[in-house]
Write a protein that binds this DNA or RNA. Structure first.
Lengths: 117, 117
DNA sequence: GCCATACTGAACCCGATGGTTCACTATTCC
DNA sequence: GGAATAGTGAACCATCGGGTTCAGTATGGC
């Protein structure tokens, strides 16, 4: 049984709840960028965008490093595994029940067909 | 390429960002419950708990039905698939890069070992 | 050294969120 | 019919979150 840090999950899901931050993740998935680059792309003040990046970093979804006067933002981190693992268990559970319901429906239909003869 | 409803994802991730709501999901994963049952379990007013259930329902993570004067809350819905699908793509991307980095490290170490001879 | 660039922190604004209480409606049970 | 049960909606409160501006610091280029 794996143990999940509650605060990490909170941060990851909260970070992904914002469409701008999901956009940043997509953007960084295609390549590194500086705060300025992202601020331009997302038409936001440097300060505002920095807050988003900080949130993503705290959630373990992006990493950053200061190179000279620039901050390079890169895609990735443990946050994806954390959140995906939590979700996946419940997604499977739901799929299994859904499949079971499907089978039940089929059986009932087959039975109806038998009775109708 | 699948298209995701932005608002649905917003709702799903936002819903899962709250530990109480994740707790409700877990609880309902083990069986149905009424609003009162949940309010007792989570030590919260009926009204407060109802809001959480409404949020989960809007996110497609829980379904409910009013039976008599009771509201039965059940686990499941499309929200899991939506959120899991979005996350999974990026989780895989990160895993792939991580694996690639591992291979690179191994190669460098192998090269060092060669050089050392 | 000086100016421009790139970011950072503090303060602020305002709408959203998590919770409450109170008043009300709809069901069930005797 | 009347009392208890189960939920709902409105109003309210405090905090959080997404955004801004403004003032400051650190770095790079001439």
């Amino acid at each position: 049984m794996v143990h999940y840090s509650a605060t990490r999950l909170d941060a990851a899901f909260a970070a992904l709840a914002d469409p701008t931050r999901r956009g940043i993740v997509e953007r960084l998935g295609r390549g590194e960028a500086s705060i300025s680059d992202l601020a331009t792309d997302f038409r936001m003040s440097l300060t505002g965008l920095k807050k988003h990046v900080s949130a993503l970093e705290a959630a373990g979804l992006v990493t950053t490093a200061k190179i000279g006067r620039e901050r390079r933002c890169r895609f990735g981190g443990d946050g994806f595994a954390d959140a995906a693992a939590w979700l996946e268990g419940y997604r499977r559970l739901w799929d299994a029940r859904f499949a079971a319901l499907d089978r039940l429906t089929e059986e009932l239909q087959a039975k109806d067909a038998m009775d109708a003869r």
